[in-house]
């Protein structure tokens, strides 16, 4: 398998995962705001905080409200982290790696892109925004199912897995970062009343509510939710599970030197988190270092497998 192709499939998967994550995030957030009374501190700004994009947002928009933030996150072509930008990048990556994927995979991404392009204006309206997000979520799921059913689970499939799980783990830590704010002592009494709803929202944004109920079987509370989303080895969007999946991909790929050690270290960091003993501030520091470690993991993956034209030309 070409190094170039490995890189493109990896990024294809990352961008599609990002597309799906943004769609789910916005969708869940809309639901949450419908449940909460007016005036609590939860609002749209948190969505750009999760993506660490406040600076970029305020460079472009003067006020942060539902209209500007949804436009920024979903439709803004000039913001590289937006849903539409991610979808464009995913399409460009699959367009240049069609030789490795079943026909239907390209058609699925292309269809999704055309749909998004033709419906960008409709997101201003809440009702049509819901429809838009649902369509994107379905499209992403169709793509995942299609590959799982149509494609040999060989090296190309593994690079798609790598990209997908790394992006997913990154997003889960970002969402937990936001959640850690909810543990903060400075919460208003009013917000505390809605704590259960907030934690449910976190679970929903990771499609984990039902699984939580089945597996944890406790009242929904912060510690248990955090534990579940960080450590669980079976929940597809839990950090622990993502790390295991990445490990499964890596171990079957040739030239994986240095990676199993990095992953082991990551796993140990995650497992050492004691959600009951950790203060909100400590948790944020831990999540921050986790995100850095994921960044390091990406570097190592690129180092081992992706095209390095300059360095090889010198040898």
């Amino acid at each position: 398998m070409l190094s170039r192709s490995a890189e493109r499939l990896y990024w294809l998967a990352r961008y599609l995962e990002r597309t799906e994550n943004i769609a789910r995030l916005v969708s869940v957030h809309m639901n949450l705001l419908m449940d909460l009374p007016k005036g609590v501190e939860m609002n749209w700004v948190q969505l750009i905080q999760i993506n660490a994009a406040e600076q970029e947002f305020y460079d472009k928009y003067t006020s942060a409200n539902e209209r500007t933030i949804t436009r920024f996150l979903l439709a803004d072509r000039t913001y590289s982290g937006s849903l539409f930008s991610s979808l464009i990048a995913a399409r460009e990556n699959i367009r240049t790696s069609r030789d490795l994927l079943p026909d239907e995979a390209w058609e699925q991404v292309n269809e999704m892109y055309l749909y998004a392009k033709n419906h960008l204006d409709s997101i201003a309206n809440r009702h049509s925004r819901v429809l838009f997000l649902n369509e994107i979520l379905k499209g992403c799921q169709r793509f995942t199912g299609l590959l799982s059913g149509y494609m040999s689970h060989h090296h190309p499939y593994r690079f798609i897995g790598l990209g997908k799980y790394l992006e997913r783990a990154d997003m889960t830590t970002r969402i937990l970062d936001l959640a850690s704010l909810l543990l903060s002592e400075s919460r208003s009494i009013e917000l505390r009343q809605y704590e259960t709803i907030l934690w449910m929202t976190i679970l929903k944004s990771l499609n984990a509510l039902l699984m939580y109920r089945q597996q944890v079987r406790s009242r929904i509370n912060g510690d248990d939710v955090l534990n579940f989303l960080l450590l669980d080895n079976n929940l597809p969007r839990a950090v622990g599970c993502c790390i295991s999946e990445i490990f499964n991909c890596i171990i079957k790929l040739p030239n994986h030197d240095g990676l199993p050690e990095k992953l082991l270290e990551l796993k140990q960091t995650v497992e050492a988190i004691d959600t009951q003993q950790t203060t909100q501030l400590q948790l944020r520091v831990i999540l921050d270092s986790l995100q850095n470690k994921f960044g390091g993991l990406h570097q190592q993956i690129a180092e081992n497998w992706f095209l390095k034209v300059e360095t090889e030309a010198v040898e």
């Binding site: 070409l2 190094s3 170039r4």
Partner: peptide, 22 residues
């Protein structure tokens, strides 16, 4: 495989190779 110029390299043995993950 669909390759671009930079995926290929000709070594001293005058053979053409492609840069793969292996």
């Amino acid at each position: 495989q669909l390759v671009e110029g930079s995926d290929l390299v000709v070594k001293d043995d005058d053979c053409v190779y492609m840069r793969t993950i292996e």
